[in-house]
Amino acid sequence: MDIVACYKWVLDEQDIKIVPGSLLLDTSRAKGKISDYDKNVIEEAVLQAEKDDTVTVTALTFGNAKAKQSLKDALSRGPVKGYWVNDAAADIADGFVTANVLTAALKKIGAYDLILFGEGSSDAYGQQVGPRVAALLGIPVVTFVTKLEISEGKVMAARKIGDCTEDVTVNLPAVITLLPEVCKPRIPGLKQVLGASKKPVQEFKLADLDLVAENTLPKNKIKSIQGYAMDRKNEIYTDGTVDEKVNTLIASLTKEGLL
């Protein structure tokens, strides 16, 4: 039984600065990371394998050359093998392109019973790659899952859909997208990190995959990406006694007509 955990290598938004005036994004200092919720995705796959030794977990990512560093992190979390579609096309890929590429990669890999995705990536939060891949592979999808159990070629999953929870069952192969509450990602130890370098990584180029050119071109035209300008008073009371700080705040809120 093969589980493929899909993760995205993204820029850490906490390192992105907004250039005052132009509101352009300065990403020059931004480090990469595994998209926050995708750590939970890898964890959940590995937890399933720990419960059942017939389960094999691999990790799949589509990223540019810099995503190379992500594989060590991903593999230190437990998967036995990494698949990396290494192509600069990832830089401008939208949900349409990413899903086409991942689907082509999955077909090439061949071994998938359960494919796990995050609910949304931390940079784009496009909330679409998982169900798109399911549609392209022609297999069922269960989205927004908080709990899953695999047995006898089936997955039992609990979903959380706004104002209700649902228990569903689906036959494998299937796609599942996970909410982060599903589990807490582990912090890999030194041994896991060292072990990760010995695990195999299979690399693909877009040209190795069965893809027609138009399926690698993003659909919409990006006109601008601008930082959100935060215009606040920023009166922060740092010094003084608790009494003084609280008095100043109460005075300010009274002036605002809020008390």
Partner: peptide, 18 residues
Amino acid sequence: KDVAARIAAWHSHGLVNS
């Protein structure tokens, strides 16, 4: 969003969520 993503994939269309 679940339904939208699958329709977008079947029709090879773009999808802008939220």
